[in-house]
Amino acid sequence: MSDDIKFVLSLLLLSSLMLFVASDDTECLRTLQKSLVDPRGELESTWNFSGNGFNGFICSFTGVNCWNPSDSTVRSLHLVSLGLQGQFPEGLQGCSMIEDLNLSGNSFSGPIPSDISWRLPYLRYLDLSHNSFSGQIPTNITEMTKLEFLNLSNNDFSGPIPSNISLLVPQLSSLDLSYNSFSGPIPVSITDMAYLKLKTLNLRHNKLNGEIPWQFCSLAHSVSFSVAENLFSGLVPSCFENFTASIFAGNRRLCGAPLGNCRLRRVNDETSIGAAVGFVVGFVLAFYFPHWFVFSTSLHSYIFRI
């Protein structure tokens, strides 16, 4: 077979493959649109599938960005603050080359699909913030090894942070789990991420408890983080004594620099408890033994009776 014929066959094969991918991506968006509730008609008015007479037409849809405007292969999908409702969109696995998904600022609910790593294997950026998603972080998410940015903040997620979270994403640079209801201790494995690419870690306003692991010191000078407004207790690791108090604020049982002095707080607590116990004991004694209570010798042993 001549080189010219091989070249022509290669072009035909490539063209067929591109058309196949483009067809899949068109069907991906069509399925996605059908799976959502669109009360404001944001997608209904701009995603017009009847105009598919030319390749690349879906690249002009609201929130859709393609790798190449002429081949209809979706690179990113930004459906931000459009009032969309429903569960995690169906059909996204058809957009096989998507690397950026932003669904923030809508009213999505329900869990993250347990097979998300299969649906979106090449995803680098995932933003589900400011919705009503719930449930736990699926363990399958640890297989999304290309993910660099994950924002699940301001939702209704609960349960523990996966203990193997360091396997979550070797390339992860930002992890935001703030303003949810995550509970349990901070996994020590999360500190392993400090030796990778992690730059931002936000655990603010959850129900996390236990002590701040001393291994967290490995994050001290390389990662911007917050554990404020949780249920942590005990002593802040000494490596954070020169950090701002706002990072740890709102944990009532947490103390030590840069928060208040633990000994002083303990003394105040004991004094308050002692005063309360003393008041109760005094009241009981006064009620049953009123003849014991003498206000002053100048009153000639005036007896206080209830």
Rank of each mutant, 00 (worst) to 15 (best):
M1R: 14
D4W: 10
K6C: 08
V8I: 14
L9I: 14
L12A: 15
L14W: 00
S15R: 04
S15C: 10
S16V: 15
L17R: 11
L19E: 11
A22H: 12
S23N: 09
S23R: 02
D25Q: 04
C28N: 03
V37A: 12
R40N: 07
R40V: 05
E42C: 10
S45A: 14
N48M: 09
N48W: 01
F49N: 05
G53Y: 00
F54P: 14
F54G: 06
F61Y: 04
T62C: 06
G63T: 13
N65L: 11
W67G: 13
D71Q: 15
D71M: 09
S72T: 09
L77K: 06
L77S: 15
S81K: 11
L84G: 11
Q85I: 06
G86A: 11
G86K: 12
G86N: 08
E90P: 00
G91R: 13
E99Q: 14
D100E: 05
N102S: 12
L103E: 01
L103V: 07
L103Y: 01
N106F: 01
S109N: 12
I112N: 09
P113A: 04
P113I: 08
S117K: 00
W118E: 14
L120D: 08
L123H: 01
Y125F: 07
L128Q: 12
H130R: 12
N131K: 04
M144K: 01
M144D: 06
K146G: 05
L147C: 04
L147D: 06
L147P: 03
F149P: 06
N151V: 13
L152Q: 09
L152G: 04
S153W: 13
S153I: 08
N155C: 10
P160G: 14
P160D: 14
N164P: 01
I165E: 02
I165S: 03
I165N: 00
I165Q: 02
L167D: 11
L167E: 08
V169C: 08
Q171N: 11
Q171F: 07
L172F: 00
N180P: 01
F182D: 03
F182C: 04
T191E: 05
D192I: 05
Y195A: 12
Y195Q: 09
L196N: 07
T200A: 00
L201N: 01
L201R: 10
N202K: 03
R204V: 04
N206D: 08
K207Y: 02
K207A: 05
L208I: 09
L208R: 11
N209C: 05
I212Q: 00
I212P: 00
P213Q: 06
Q215M: 11
F216H: 04
F216W: 08
S218Y: 06
A220P: 04
S224N: 06
S226Y: 02
V227E: 07
A228Q: 03
A228F: 00
N230E: 07
G234S: 03
L235V: 12
L235Y: 00
P237E: 09
E241A: 13
T244F: 04
A249N: 12
G250L: 04
N251E: 09
R253G: 14
R253M: 15
P258N: 01
G260R: 09
N261T: 04
E270V: 15
G274R: 02
G274M: 14
A275K: 07
F283Y: 07
V284L: 12
L285V: 10
L285W: 10
Y288S: 06
F289A: 12
F289E: 15
H291K: 10
H291T: 04
F293A: 10
F295K: 15
F295E: 10
F295P: 15
S296A: 03
H300L: 03
R305Q: 08
